[in-house]
Every structure is written in structure tokens, then in C-alpha cells.
Design a protein around this nucleic acid. Structure first.
Lengths: 352, 352
DNA sequence: GCGAATCTGATAGACGTCAATCATTTTCTG
DNA sequence: CAGAAAATGATTGACGTCTATCAGATTCGC
């Protein structure tokens, strides 16, 4: 049996193709009786609209937009690269992905960028959530205007955002804590947490997570967190100072960025006696440090997967499908031996 | 600018649509000059054929087949479930995925199943590689017949198989070794490796991997591997015996299946004094043990991602595109705190 | 330079859906 | 029951590609 077409549905329902079409696309001017017949036929035949034929016919192009921080942090960079990679890969599927840069952590700037979007130029936007009233207002406006909004990497409280794609940062912190506990296994220890700023929600959540696990672990103390503002120089100084202390920490947990400085400080130590080091985000620096044995684990949120998941959700939103249950982006643990192959230089398909 | 169509190409090349089509689809009967003109126009305009329109027109359906072991091992089960999930999800994209069961680890049976396939009924097959001459012969036959063949989870040496999707098992073993080393951190220890059978290539490779890392780690000895035939009862007995020994192992590494028995044996111990336990594959049993704190880490090969990657490659092969560079399935590490959400009860999109 | 072989152009009907028009029938309102 | 309003059917031309056919043009061998 061939897949049923709308013509089959119309025939089975005993109505004309036009009427079936009116029901399917909610064009109105259909009696309740006819509508019921058509719906019954759809269900009976298991009809599913051929999206590709439909998109061909209506010349549809999905216009999806990413607003991502322009910083040169390795993580933002790989996020942007993932978007560009998907941009090329999905062009075949009538998905036009555009990428705009916005200043990092700047609610006003983000709100300004959002304010320029209209339903005519964009079906769906994704950006890093910043907790800001102006941003919330724009999200509400866009949502009302029919532009689906989703947050990636960090969420916002607004109920108007259609979905969030990103990791659970408390869970990520717990994961780090678990590895710290594993690396101590009953021995006493002192963990120094390093964060960018307490004001950053994700850093704070990771800190909370690591505390949850270590509180339950006997003998491991969590030292007061040091704020580094994600700055390598500050990071280096903070770590060097801590390591010079008589009660040297047995573990370093960096929940934020600026890990170059951390690695530099650790590299100065006797390798056999260095503390356990766990950082976030697999970027060229952290990867190199992992390979060199200067740090022990990297907790990563797999930006490429986040972008891909975000696009799948955008697609579902644009098609009016039920949003696929957030394909749980769980933080992944990298050690020296399970690193992914070096990022290939942007693969492209060619078949003109 | 609208995306160029083949009509545009023909016009730009100064030939008729028919000739452009003859070039694009290699129908022959085209002069070298005309062909060159068309190819130049394609390049100049950046023309890319609209696969969806093409598939619509030719009523194409991709027929992909998985031959997977029928065993009730948790891992095989989740592999099969992943296939079924993709089956539903990709029906929209003209991809007909079928799943057939074959006896596990049975080269002859696999070869028999492969022998029944023809190019008329199948565009591409995927199965778990079994090193067997009959299988190799069938792979060669299918490849000649134009049916692309790919292996998943475990590879075969044959060059006729178009691609392999699965983890590097040595790397997976190394990852386990790295975690073992992390859990010892300079302290001496004895690790007991448990494998199904030395004859299984993947188990042997994992064993080699863990040895590589532990040889380099000071003070950690790798005990002789015990073969359990993936049988929970044998596993339980072997572990219980080892734990009763005066020189009790400080770590257990199970490279194969039957971990239910392992968990039972470990559960009988004082939780504070149990060895470090690392097993493979996130299945209901291992997940429960992880959540209960009876084991420390699970190394998983993410069957769902493997299946998805395999289907993407099948699609590329069927379309004659360059095979996307194997999207590096790296083994992932699960601890208690970064477990994915419970597998949802098969999501489905509905939009008739 | 003639017939044969090869190449080229023009065209048409699919594929499944959308979007629109227009004529006709049915139902509602007063 | 007339007239208006609502519902329905029938039909058409896209969308971009495939496949097929047929007539006409060009090249080739000899």
C-alpha cells in the first residue's frame, strides 16, 4: 500500500479535495459534519502530510536566527562554529540559519537586537538567556508576534520562551563533585572552587552542585569560592596563591572560563604532586592541557549537539509539531582518552 | 536572489533544460562541449539540486535495513529501540527503516540473512560486524550489487564495507583505565578485569586499553582477566571469590556484560570499603546500580547516537554524497550525576 | 553527399501539496 | 419563500525535478 495522499483522504471522507484541504489547513468555511468526516478519514488512513511536497509548493524557507556572544572565549567560538556548520548542512532542507553577534552578558544589547526582529524576517530566534526585564519584554513581544523564541546554554525565567536547550548546571556541578570525590576516595581533601562571578547564574549553579555532592562526602572540604572574572591573569594569580598555601588544596574546580591561567599555574608544579583539576568546556586550551596531563577532566556541554538540538526544535516549532521532548543534553566528561577527533575543517556535501 | 533551478542552469549554459538534465543525471548522449558548458554554469551559479523535489518526483523511498542481534542483553535491546525510534521519526523523510533480528555472534546466520538481500529490496544494510569469511563474501557481493554496507558497534576488516559507526574500544578501555587511575591517585591497587570472552574482539580491545593506561600508572597492578561468558551467575561467583581473597582487588573493571551478577556481589560488601567499579553500557541494571551508589562509573557507547549517525551515513551513501566524516562516536562516561533523563516512551510527531 | 549515428530542443505528464477562483448547492434568516 | 450567507465541488497553475517521447539538427563514416 502506498502512503495515502490528501486525495485519498478526500475520497475516503466522501468530500472533494478542496474540502479536505480546507480542513487540513484550517481555511474555514467547512461544516462540522464535513470536518468530522475528514478527520475520521485522516485517522483511519493514517494520513500524514508530506512536508516536503508542501514546502516545495509553498516555497517555504525556514528562517532561523541565532544571536550569540561575540567574545573570543573558546566556548562561544565553538558555539558559533557549530552554527555555521549546521548552516551549511541544513541549506538542503530549506533551513536558512543566520548568525548574529551580540555583546556577551549584555541584556540591553540583546534586547536591542531582539527588538529589530519581526515575524516577516524570522520564524524563530535562539540566544543565550540573560536575566533582564528588557529581554523578557522582547521575548513576550516576539512570542505574541508569532516568532518562536528559545534559549540555549542558559535559560531565562520567562514562560514565553518556547524551549530551553542546554545542560542542567547543577547537575554539571554535581558531576564535577562526583569526580572530585572519586579522586579522593575516602581521603581527606580541600577543594578550591574558582568561578567567574557569583552573579552568573550558571557558575553559581555549578558551585551549588559541587557543594551538594561534597557535603555528602566525608572528609572533603569545599573552600570559599574565588571569583576570577573569567580572566586568565586573575585566575593564574589566584591559583598560584592557593597552591603556595601551607594547606594546599587537593583539588581545583573551575566552574567558569579563563582556564589558561589555571593551567599555567598548575604546570609549574611537580606533576606527581599536583592537585586534581577539573574544568568546564572542551576548547583548544583545555584539550591541550588534558592531553598533556596537566588537568584531569573536562566537563563539556557539547555545543555542537546543543545547536543541532536547538535547530531540530526550531523546525518542530515552525511546523507546528509538538516540541520533541528536549533531547536531554547531559554534561559529558572528557578525560585524556575519550576525546573526540579533532574538529574537522567544516565538512560540506556536494552533489550539484 | 532565489536559489537557482535547473532551468536557470540550462539558460545560463545556453542549452535546453533537457540537455542540462542529461548532464546532471548522466543520461549520456551529450557532447563534451555541452557538458562542459553545463558544468560551468552549475559551478558559476552555485546550483544544488533540490533533493526533496527530486525525491518527490521520482517517488523515491530510501530502504534501509538493520540486522541486529535478538538477544535480550540490555545493550542490544536499546540498540533495537533506537532503531525503532528513528524508524518513526524518519518516516517523514522518505526513509523506510526495517529491523530484522539475527542470532548474536553467529557469523553463519548473519551471512544467511545477508544472502537474502538484493538491491531491489534494499539500498543499504547495517549490522554488527562478525569476523567470518561467509559474512565477508556477502558484504562483497552486496557492495558489488550496489547495496551499501555498513557496520555498527563492531567492525570487520573487509574494505567493501562503506563505513563503520561505533566507538574505538581501545579508547574505551583506556578511558576506564584513566578513571581507575583517578580513583587511586598514587595509591597502590589491584584491578580485576572481567570480560565475556577473550575471543570477542571488542572485549579484548578494551582489556588492552585499560592495560595501556595502568601500565603507565605507578603502583596499580592489572590482575589476570577472568572470563565470565557474559553470564551473571558466573560473574557473581567470580567477583565474590575475588573479593573474598586476602589481596582483595581495589577495582573491578567489567568490559563485557552480565553485570547484574557483579552488582549483586558488590552489594553484599560494606559500602565504605567496596572497590572502585566501572562497567560498560548504560542499561537499566547498570543505571540502577549507579544511582544506588553500588558502582562508580558506566562507560557507554550511546546506541541512540550510533543509530542516528548510521542513518545519516546511509542517507549520504544513498544520495551519492561524500560520506560525512564519521561523526566520532566517543565513549561517554556516566556517573551518578550526569545521567540522561529516563528514556521517554517513544516520542512521536503528529500533524496530519 | 547520403544514410546512419549522435546530439539537441521542445514538450508533457507525473509527484503531493498549496493557494486561488468560480460556479453551484445547501443552509440559515426573517 | 425569497434572499443572503455559508459550504462545497471542480479546476487550475504553480513548486523543482524526473522521465519519456519525438522531431529536428549536427556530425560522422565512407
Amino acid at each position: 500500500m502506498r502512503k495515502p495522499t490528501l486525495h485519498d483522504v478526500a475520497a475516503a471522507a466522501g468530500v472533494s479535495y478542496a474540502t479536505a484541504d480546507r480542513v487540513l489547513n484550517a481555511r474555514g468555511n467547512v461544516s462540522a459534519r464535513a470536518e468530522a468526516q475528514v478527520r475520521a478519514a485522516i485517522a483511519r488512513l493514517g494520513y500524514r502530510r508530506d512536508v516536503h511536497a508542501a514546502n516545495l509548493s509553498r516555497r517555504r524557507v525556514y528562517r532561523f536566527r541565532f544571536l550569540l556572544p561575540s567574545g573570543d572565549h573558546g566556548f562561544f567560538r565553538s558555539l558559533r562554529q557549530s552554527v555555521l556548520a549546521e548552516q551549511a548542512a541544513r541549506a538542503q532542507d530549506r533551513v536558512a540559519v543566520s548568525l548574529d553577534a551580540v555583546p556577551a552578558f549584555d541584556g540591553a544589547a540583546l534586547a536591542g537586537a531582539l527588538a529589530r526582529l519581526t515575524a516577516e524576517s524570522c520564524d524563530c530566534v535562539a540566544f543565550l538567556g540573560v536575566d533582564d526585564p528588557e529581554v523578557a519584554a522582547q521575548v513576550a513581544r516576539l512570542s505574541d508576534a508569532g516568532v518562536a523564541v528559545l534559549t540555549v546554554v542558559s535559560d531565562i525565567p520567562s514562560p514565553a520562551r518556547a524551549a530551553y536547550v542546554g545542560i542542567d548546571n547543577i547537575g554539571a556541578g554535581r558531576t564535577a563533585g562526583r569526580l572530585m570525590a572519586l579522586g579522593h576516595r575516602g581521603r581527606a581533601g580541600r577543594i578550591l572552587p574558582l568561578i567567574g562571578t557569583r552573579a552568573a547564574q550558571d557558575h553559581a549553579q555549578r558551585l551549588a552542585g559541587v557543594a551538594q555532592v561534597l557535603d555528602a562526602a566525608a572528609g572533603i572540604a569545599l573552600l570559599p569560592a574565588v571569583e576570577t572574572r573569567d580572566d586568565p591573569a586573575r585566575m593564574r594569580a589566584a591559583v598560584a596563591q592557593a597552591l603556595a598555601d601551607a594547606a594546599r588544596p587537593t583539588g581545583l574546580y573551575s566552574a567558569g572560563a579563563g582556564n589558561r591561567g589555571l593551567v599555567q599555574a598548575v604546570a609549574a608544579l611537580d606533576p606527581a604532586a599536583r592537585p586534581l583539576v577539573i574544568v568546564h568546556e572542551l576548547v583548544p586550551h583545555s584539550r591541550a592541557a588534558l592531553e598533556a596531563g596537566l588537568i584531569d577532566a573536562v566537563i563539556d556541554q557539547k555545543p555542537a549537539e546543543e545547536v543541532a538540538a536547538a535547530l531540530d526544535i526550531m523546525r518542530a516549532l515552525a511546523d507546528g509539531l509538538p516540541v520533541p521532548p528536549a533531547p536531554g543534553i547531559t554534561p559529558t566528561i572528557y578525560v585524556k582518552d575519550n576525546l573526540p577527533a579533532q574538529p574537522a575543517p567544516a565538512p560540506r556535501g556536494d552533489d550539484p
